[in-house]
């Protein structure tokens, strides 16, 4: 009897379509988000994360409608991220049927948004997304910093201290993405994953780089993650969520099968 580790398929959505690129460039179309969410739900996904990667204000209504449609037929937790900048954005997404919202860049510009959101809506629905890149030389002590704009813009903020700060401000969960690995299929960046999971008391989702089922297992057994997020290995039919869960269970990881 143990709390199961979670597999979270992620839908990166651009103007109403699920897409996934390599390092956020070279985008491939993977289909209709509602259809894909329904399939993952049937396959036994533990949660679904929906990241609106266009997130321009004009497209916001499309996102809200898609979230509403997914929430009407998918009875597992749904996290929505991308373009969440203010308490009103959070309210809009929760009202559309999201269970959690993921705050990324806005937390960097205004950390108090995290505490205000946690106070207003409860920590359980506030996920802080942390996009990191390794900034140290290969042979030196590893140092990771936060990047914005899909990994293009450095912030100078050190990742572990930021993770602790977000937890202290009331984040209920952290979504940690390695921008070095995202889309590469080389596996999670396990060093920083382990460092952050060991540094905070809240759950951590590992993200960025999954190419094989072993990578998912490594995120938990080596990275210490509470949940693992992946996109392309599921979108293009290489593996089903069920196969991934069975594989992880076969490695002794507690899973909901």
């Amino acid at each position: 009897m143990a709390l199961a580790k979670r597999i979270i398929p992620c839908l990166d959505v651009d103007r109403g379509r699920v897409v996934k690129g390599v390092n956020f460039v070279g985008i491939r179309d993977a289909g209709d988000p509602v259809e894909i969410a329904r399939r993952y739900n049937e396959e036994g996904a533990d949660e679904i994360t929906f990241l609106d990667i266009t997130a321009s204000h004009e497209e916001r209504d499309t996102t809200v409608q898609t979230v509403e449609q997914i929430a009407r037929e998918v009875f597992i937790p749904l996290t929505v991220g991308g373009g969440i900048r203010a308490l009103q954005d959070i309210r809009t997404m929760l009202n559309a049927g999201a269970d959690k919202v993921s705050i990324n860049t806005a937390a960097i510009h205004d950390p108090d948004l995290v505490s205000a959101a946690a106070a207003r809506f409860g920590s359980q629905c506030i996920v802080v997304a942390i996009d990191v890149k390794r900034v140290s030389e290969p042979e030196s002590l590893p140092r990771y910093e936060l990047f914005t704009h899909g990994g293009r813009k450095p912030t100078g903020i050190e990742a572990v201290s930021w993770a602790k700060k977000m937890a202290a401000l009331g984040a209920g969960e952290l979504l940690l993405t390695s921008m070095d690995r995202d889309g590469t299929r080389d596996g999670f960046e396990l060093t920083i994953t382990r460092e952050i999971t060991d540094s905070v008391d809240i759950p951590v989702i590992a993200s960025g780089g999954v190419g094989t089922l072993q990578h998912l297992a490594d995120g938990v057994t080596q990275g210490g993650a509470d949940a693992v997020l992946a996109a392309s290995i599921f979108h293009f039919g290489e593996y089903t969520v069920r196969e991934a869960k069975q594989f992880m269970a076969s490695k002794g990881i507690p899973m909901r099968l």
Binding site: M1, A2, D46
Partner: peptide, 30 residues
């Protein structure tokens, strides 16, 4: 153990109840 207790955990049924009908003891809930 992380707090919040977040995710799917098994629920062991301590006694029979009409709301448990068709649900096995040990089933995961969120």
């Amino acid at each position: 153990l992380k707090v919040p207790h977040m995710g799917w955990n098994q629920v062991v049924q301590k006694r029979a109840h009409p709301l448990w009908a068709g649900i096995e003891s040990g089933t995961h809930f969120y």
